[in-house]
Amino acid sequence: MKREDLIAMGLSEENADKIMADYGSSVQKAKAKADEYKTKADKAEELQKQLDDIEQGKLTEVEQANKNLEKANARIAELEKAQAIATQRANAASKFNVTAEQAAQIVKDDGSFDYDVLGKIISEKETAAAQAKEQEIANGSTNPGGGTAGGDKAGTDNKTNAEKIAESLISNAPKNNDVLSHYIQQ
């Protein structure tokens, strides 16, 4: 409504001015409240957007942390498997009395045992031990013709007992005309 419309309705100019002033102040108060609500609404929208961004950021951080955790767990499992295989190989080496290289052949990289390789290694060890024992026995025995089967030992010679006795008699005897000196020529 306009001021003229109020005067046309029969109100005095003073009353029309008063009504218009009251109306204007009411409109201004309502407009101020509306602006305040609009500002609060805009701020609420902005805060909600920030909250959503933070939640999204945290979600990606959580997802990243989960991926890192999965990687760490996979690496731990890998190391535990390698440690278990190393322990199995060490146990095989000590219990079967084999070298580390042989233990690596017995215990495969997947942790399983190769019993064929184990049997072969044990068989080779038994054969080698039997051959060593045979050689030891053969070296300690005597030949039917005299002497030892081991052949010439270090520091010994192939002289008979008679030759050794004769040498000792000659080396201890004085160099004069005794009986032995006539028979042994030097």
Rank of each mutant, 00 (worst) to 15 (best):
Lys67Met: 03
Lys67Val: 08
Lys67Asp: 10
Asn68Ile: 04
Asn68Val: 06
Leu69Val: 04
Glu70Cys: 02
Lys71Ala: 06
Ala74His: 11
Ala74Arg: 14
Arg75Pro: 00
Ile76Glu: 10
Ile76Phe: 10
Ile76Thr: 12
Ala77Arg: 10
Glu78Gln: 15
Glu78Val: 04
Glu78Arg: 03
Leu79Ser: 06
Leu79Asp: 11
Ala82Arg: 14
Ala82Val: 11
Ala82His: 07
Ala82Lys: 15
Ala84Ser: 13
Ala84Met: 06
Ile85Trp: 07
Ile85Glu: 04
Ile85Arg: 04
Thr87Asp: 14
Thr87His: 13
Gln88Asp: 07
Arg89Ile: 03
Arg89Glu: 06
Arg89Met: 11
Arg89Thr: 07
Ala90Trp: 04
Ala90Thr: 14
Asn91Thr: 14
Asn91Trp: 01
Asn91Gln: 12
Asn91Ala: 06
Asn91Cys: 00
Ala93Gly: 07
Ala93Gln: 12
Ala93Val: 05
Lys95Phe: 00
Phe96Gln: 03
Phe96Glu: 12
Val98Phe: 01
Thr99Pro: 04
Thr99Phe: 02
Glu101Lys: 09
Glu101Tyr: 02
Glu101Arg: 09
Glu101Ser: 15
Gln102Trp: 10
Gln102Phe: 05
Gln102Cys: 10
Ala103Tyr: 05
Ala103Thr: 05
Ile106Trp: 07
Ile106Leu: 02
Lys108Asn: 15
Asp110Glu: 11
Asp110Gln: 13
